[in-house]
Design a protein around this nucleic acid. Structure first.
Length: 574
DNA sequence: GCCGTTTTCGGCCCGACTGTTTTCAGTCG
């Protein structure tokens, strides 16, 4: 059993335990473990095989280590089997309904015997639900409305999609009377690859006008809640937007709090407690001897909050409780302006929509100093992949283009397929002539790990290959990664002096943030590439930069911040 | 269920909002 499956098992255990009203901290232990396992780059199955001490992992104790061993060897754990037999399948679906938590869901199951969304709908329509203690007619109506919502609850959207909505919301709210400051917080501000809902924070003397303004936003489906400081709405797209209106003196504390992540905040508040302080969205407070809230000591800015706890202020992208509390100084993370070249793009020669010259002009317009033209190789027949003859033809065209354009270098590249049986899709003598050779895998994606790794490692060790593109192949929300041993791939790249791509397409973002951190640890340079198939495709680099920042990368960790002549030496091209 | 030079037991972040209640539990983030 692989890491994601183990994480899923722990999450399911947490859900089931919660449903049974188990100790909330025990539930949290399982959720924490699920997250740690998901974040882990090493294969737990391999660690178990090697007899590694899993309790060395943060959040994994004796009990969870045993369950991991059980899951990796037997593919199941007795505890989960027992929980599943105790809770009818379908009951957990109730928890997806907004407003239904474990307590209410358990009451519905216990009192009315409800085991599915369909039964729940019938019970609501027969008004059996409102008769239960703790339920009323409003709850019943909310559940009925929530069933349809839960049935097709949307998944988290790409950061890029969320960004478009955020910009519209901010532009709309800026017009509200009295608004002094406006920020988008939450996972959006942390630059997470997907965003579930939007958190907006406003500094205004009075909450009324700002909330009224939000209510007028075109595309609001309904208002979910509205109080003195907090308002929640749902957009037509299904996305939820939470607005908080806070006074200026609390703005920093509020921004810190609503930026999260949850795990970061839990840790932060624990650290505050150790220091005799309390942190909430209103500020930082001393705690009296009797535990009562004491003097307020700060909270106007985020820096103030962190400084009061003797911490450096981590960039929002780093706030995931993945070591940011140990920072002695804040790293200067990479920025979009640091990128000087783009080394992965397509033209009409294969499946691109813009011609060679159009791509060069568009790249030059965007201030890029060098680009590599990297169309597909012949194996990718659906895209009209290039044979050696057609590739050489394109390179002759590039010779001409080089004379037509100044102030941008155009490199002769290729995105060469790694064949299903292993080996490269073009002969060595052709690859030897290229300035830049990308190796990537498009076919045989469901092969077992051993085969996938043989292909990837073969490419890494190939003398003419510069880099492996979209190394895991995952498509966010759509396709799982190939079965890649990322730890081994990174180690091999380090040994061979090769580079790895961070593909900036919002649907790929491959490598992911944790993989970037792993590459940095091994000293493997990352190249952030657009993989553009049209002119506008060149504009995705910013999403790659966000992902790189989440991995803690600085400009010196990213190879296309170098000039081409520096980068050429790095990859050993003549 | 995890964790620990203050602890191997007793902690484990904190507050807003809603609905169903007459003071609070449940849910959510």
């Amino acid at each position: 059993m692989n890491n994601p499956k183990i994480a899923d098992a722990f999450d399911e255990i947490a859900d089931l335990l919660e449903f049974q009203a188990a100790n909330p901290f025990r539930v949290r232990a399982y959720r924490n473990a699920a997250r740690k396992v998901r974040d882990l780059s090493e294969s737990l199955a391999a660690m178990v095989d090697e007899g590694a001490d899993l309790t060395k992992l943060d959040g994994i104790g004796k009990d969870l280590a045993e369950k991991i061993a059980e899951l990796t060897t037997a593919g199941r754990t007795a505890m989960l089997d027992e929980l599943r037999s105790a809770v009818p399948p379908g009951v957990l679906a109730l928890l997806r309904i907004p407003g239904l938590g474990p307590k209410k869901a358990a009451a519905l199951h216990k009192e009315l015997g409800i085991v599915s969304l369909e039964m729940l709908r019938a019970a609501c329509e027969e008004h059996k639900v409102r008769a239960l203690k703790g339920f009323g007619d409003k709850t019943e109506e909310a559940i009925l409305a929530g069933i349809d919502f839960a049935a097709h609850a949307q998944e988290r959207v790409y950061w890029a999609t969320a960004d478009a909505t955020v910009q519209e919301l901010l532009a709309h709210l800026e017009g509200a009377p009295g608004v002094r400051r406006l920020e988008a917080a939450g996972s959006y501000r942390r630059g997470k690859e997907t965003v579930g809902d939007l958190d907006l924070l406003a500094d205004a003397p009075d909450h009324g006008p700002v909330m009224d303004r939000l209510a007028e936003f075109p595309g609001i489906a309904e208002t979910l809640a509205r109080g003195d400081t907090k308002m929640s709405v749902r957009l037509d797209t299904g996305m939820q937007v939470d607005l908080r209106v806070m006074p200026a003196e609390s703005f920093g504390a509020a921004l810190q709090y609503f930026t999260g992540s949850k795990e970061h905040n839990v840790k932060l508040r624990g650290l505050a407690k150790d220091r005799g302080l309390k942190v909430n969205e209103w500020g930082v407070f001393r705690v009296g001897k009797d535990g009562a809230e004491g003097e307020r000591v700060g909270g106007a800015t985020e820096d103030e909050v962190y400084t009061l706890l003797d911490l450096v202020t981590p960039a929002p992208e780093l706030r995931e409780d993945r070591g940011e509390f140990d920072l002695k100084q804040a790293p200067k993370l990479i920025e979009l302006a640091d990128l000087r070249g783009d080394l992965h793009m397509h033209t009409t020669a294969t499946d691109g929509r813009a011609s060679l010259r159009e791509m060069v002009q568009a790249a030059k317009d965007r201030g890029l100093k060098y680009i590599a033209i990297t169309d597909h190789s012949q194996r990718v027949s659906m895209a009209g992949g290039l044979t050696p003859e057609r590739l050489r033809e394109q390179w002759r065209e590039i010779d001409l283009v080089r004379k037509e354009f100044d102030s941008i270098e155009v490199l002769k590249g290729i995105e060469c397929d790694i064949l299903e049986r292993g080996g490269m899709d073009l002969p060595d003598d052709v690859l030897a002539e290229a300035d830049w050779v990308i190796a990537s895998l498009h076919y045989g994606q469901s092969q077992p790990r051993s085969q996938i790794m043989e292909r990837l490692l073969g490419a890494v060790e190939h003398k003419h290959v510069s880099i492996v593109a979209h190394p895991t192949g995952r498509l966010i929300n759509r396709r799982e990664a190939y079965d890649v041993d990322i730890e081994r791939l990174v180690a091999a790249a380090a040994a061979a002096g090769k580079l790895l791509e961070l593909n900036a397409n919002p649907a790929r973002l491959d490598l992911n943030d944790q993989h970037c951190a792993l590459a940095k640890k091994h000293g493997v340079p990352i190249v952030i590439s657009s993989d553009a198939h049209r002119i506008e495709g060149l504009d995705v680099l910013r999403y790659g930069v966000l992902q790189a920042r989440r991995g803690g990368l600085t400009a010196s960790d990213v190879a296309n911040t170098l000039s081409w002549s520096e980068l050429k030496k790095l990859v050993g091209r003549k």
